[in-house]
Amino acid sequence: MVLQDQASGRLLPLRHLGRHTPHHSPSLSWNGRYLAVLAGAGRQRRVLLEDRATGRLHRLLLPPDLEPERLSLAPDARRLALEVAGPGRARLRLFDLAALLEPDRPPGWLGQGNAGAGRP
């Protein structure tokens, strides 16, 4: 897993995610504070989320019947969407992360009215 600052080209250090492989489906929050990935394979696949501000690794506990294939972390880190394998077809499952993570708002965010805009 590589995280690069596009402005400088510099590779940024990851405290945890370099140790869990293989990784799939990386997703970054707005300012790059949070990086969410799928780690492992098959039913052992897990959702890991590194908080680069605190150095903490969050291992998200999912219902045991879910086999995640792809993820999307909302830019403000308030929600997570998973594509999960199902009998004969894929499904989506959404999760609220508001109680687990501080939001990662865009610069200049002024309040609730701007939550949907996602623009600096």
Binding site: R15, H16, G55, R56, L57, H58, R59, L60, L61, L62, P63, R79, L80, R93, L94, F95, D96, L97, A98, A99, L100
Partner: peptide, 10 residues
């Protein structure tokens, strides 16, 4: 440095 968290399903 590592926590196991249960996100709230929507």
């Amino acid at each position: 440095a590592c926590t196991a968290d249960m996100p709230r399903p929507l």
